[in-house]
Structures are given as structure tokens and as C-alpha cells.
Design a binder for these strands. Structure first.
Lengths: 210, 210
DNA sequence: ATGTTTCCACCTAGGTGAAAACTT
DNA sequence: AAGTTTTCACCTAGGTGGAAACAT
């Protein structure tokens, strides 16, 4: 007879800006890749509870392929050719991580539970690239026209040289996206322009009541 | 008979940009205080050796009064009235530290010895203020027209809730300065403009050979 | 008279999507 | 034809000292 665990991990991660993410998700989120690295928008932001205040943790981010398809945007619809694509994803395991083959480490890592729980944790400085050999640690290598799902890992950091212990991994289906080198869906472009302050140059003058 | 220690701490801190600091020191360095907080220029930068790569350390910065005098710039010379000033420094021990009464903590604290030793450590984001109750942790409260000497503290950070252990404190006489709300010595102003990229608006066009 | 505060033009530094050029 | 790269104007964000206004 199956024995189910009586307790669950006390650690809770709560995704922020779910309303905004939903708007993008309903149109199929796209994220830009450039050689020099492009930030994500929206930014991945989470609140955390249930850590031990005085224990040391690392927070890390990587991207897991949602499938092995190559996606195309045809007639205002994302579609696949129905065949698995084994040429890129399966051959190069680095895709979705940094040049070191490791997830992106939040720049405040390592830090104490009390620190991580004291404020929203923002992954605003991670950059997405299609360059196979980026020179910076904050660059995540992705494959254009492939679909990814962000994951956040919480590790216990040990200050004696031992490897860190992976405590838990959280995935956020709402934040999955297709990596592109240029936006395909113009509605996605419009949403980005509307909400990303750095794209203000392209905003139409808007009604104050909105 | 006096017994002298046979060993010294293996930790070495090496101040960077000593040539630049010397130029300022020879004119009497001044640092601006503002309500909103002003960065230091030059920036305090150090290299560190001799830490244990796998031990966790905090790096902290504060400012120790060089004396209890109030300084005046008269006839192109800094001078005191020869009397100790007991009204401000001795009554308010917070001067030279943050609003919490603590030194400024380098934003990458805590981190491992291998991290701190891997690159120059820059205190470029600390801000100096004369506001008695700043709202931000990166603000150091100083008293205008008083003279200070920067100190860097290295602490061992313990990930079990125990208070950190102060391992060593380094002072840098070359970087001492008088806090001011407006520059007094125009030669200091000229040096700041010449070397601080953010003051480029005030630079005279310069000869390329310089 | 002396010292402080506020506001400002002018920078650094770098994040946007558009459009044109380029590649295959 | 389909996708990628480069360059660009236009932003965000914020660090300078100057100058005038202000405070004591």
C-alpha cells in the first residue's frame, strides 16, 4: 500500500505580477534573444516564506524546455511541424543555463533566510542570449523558436567548501515563453510597450483614466 | 619582559588608486554631504588576500573621526580654532555609521573568501549624508566640517544566528577627508571634475596627450 | 558672514522596439 | 522566404558641480 508523506516542505514561493503574466500568457509569451543579452519582461519576481531565518541559501534560475519542437508563427498562430527536433536541444545540454552549464545565480546569493524573506526577490538582471559562448555569468543561453519554462531553485549554501544542497525547485507554468530574435505577435509587442518603462519611446499617448 | 606575537594575520588588504588618492590628499581631500546622500569620489577600492576561500565573510565600512575639531577653510588653508568640539561628535555616536548605528555593509555581504578575493572590492554605492535620520541603509551620517578616516572591517559571518565575529579592521590614512556641504578648495573641485566621469559636463576640452 | 539647501543642465550607463541590412 | 544581426532614436535611472536661494 502506498505511503504518502505526512508533511510537506514548509517553503512557499509566490509568483508576483500574476495578472500581468496572465495577459502575456493568453497571447503566448515571447522573450527576445540578442547576442549581447536581453532582459526578460515581465521580470520574474517571487516572495518566499518558510525559510529558516539564520540558514544560508542560494536562489537560482534556469529554463527547462517545454518540449522538443521548433515553433513557427504562421497566420497569427504558433504551431509546430509535429516532429521532435533533436538537432539542438538534445545535443547541447547547456541551453537554458549559463555558459558554465549552471543556472543563473541571483546576485544576492548566498544570503540568509531572513534576507530572502524580507522583500520580493527579483530576477531583473538575468539576460537571455542566443550566443553559444557568452562572456558573462548573467547570460542564459536559449535556442530561438523553442519554448521554455522558468524554474527557481533554492539551495542550502554550506560555508565549508561542500557542494550546496538542492532543497527545492519551483516551476511557473504561467511564465512559460517562446524565445525569439524578433517579436512575432504584434499584440505581444503592444503589451511589452505598454508595461515596460524602457519602451516608453514607443507608447501612444494614453488616457489618464486607464 | 614583553612577549611579541610570532605570527601575524594572513589577511592583507591593498588600497587601490593610491596615486589618485595621493593627489587629493596633497590638497586635503573633501567629500560632499547632501540630504539625499552623495557618493564618495574617489571610490574606496581594495584587493584582499589571505582569506579562507570557503569561509563566509562580511565586509563593512565606517568612518572614524580623525579629531574633535571643527575645521574652517580660511585664506586657502584648512585650520581649526584650536578648541575641541564636544557638542556633536561626542554626543552623537552615530556619526560615521548608518542610521542603525552600524557600519555600512558591502552589498555583496555575506560571501565566501573565494568571492572576495576574486576581484577588487568596490564601495562605490555608499552615500554620505548630513541628514540625522536617513531612510536608507546605504547612507552614512557625517558631521560637516569634521575630518574622517575610512575603515574597512572584515567579519566572519556565522550561518546559525550567532553574532558575526570581527576579525580585523583596516584604516587608510591616505583616504582621510573633511566632510563639506560645498567644496572649499577649488583645486579639489578641479581634480574631482577631471577624474569623475559623472562630472564630465564641467570638463574643459583636454589635450589628447594628457 | 558663514554655511546649507534646492534646483538645474549636463553628463554616464544602459534598457527599449523599429527598421534596414544581412544570412542561409 | 524565413530568420538573424546591427544600428539607431528615444527612453529610464541616476550621478555631477554650479548658482541662486535660504538659514542662522
Amino acid at each position: 500500500q502506498t505511503v504518502y508523506p505526512r508533511t510537506e516542505s514548509p517553503v512557499h514561493l509566490e509568483l508576483q505580477d500574476t495578472e500581468l503574466w496572465s495577459c502575456f500568457e493568453s497571447l503566448s509569451t515571447e522573450m527576445i534573444l540578442t547576442k549581447g543579452g536581453r532582459r526578460m519582461f515581465p521580470v520574474l519576481r517571487v516572495g518566499v516564506r518558510g525559510l529558516d531565518p539564520e540558514t544560508l541559501y542560494d536562489f537560482k534560475l534556469d529554463f527547462i524546455p517545454c518540449d522538443n519542437y521548433r515553433w513557427r508563427y504562421v497566420s497569427r498562430q504558433w504551431q509546430t511541424n509535429g516532429k521532435q527536433d533533436n538537432t539542438s536541444l538534445n545535443q547541447d545540454r547547456r541551453y537554458g543555463v549559463t555558459i558554465k552549464g549552471e543556472p543563473y545565480s541571483h546576485p544576492k546569493s548566498p544570503n540568509y533566510g531572513r534576507f530572502w524573506m524580507s522583500d520580493i526577490i527579483e530576477f531583473k538582471n538575468v539576460k537571455l542570449t542566443n550566443r553559444p559562448n557568452p562572456t558573462k555569468d548573467d547570460h542564459i543561453i536559449l535556442n530561438s523558436l523553442h519554448k521554455y519554462k522558468p524554474r527557481i531553485h533554492i539551495l542550502q549554501s554550506l560555508s565549508n567548501g561542500q557542494p550546496n544542497i538542492l532543497l527545492e525547485t519551483f516551476t511557473f507554468p504561467l511564465t512559460s515563453f517562446i524565445a525569439v530574435t524578433a517579436y512575432q505577435n504584434e499584440e505581444i509587442t503592444a503589451l511589452k510597450i505598454r508595461h515596460n518603462p524602457f519602451a516608453k519611446a514607443f507608447q501612444e499617448p494614453r488616457d489618464r483614466t486607464e
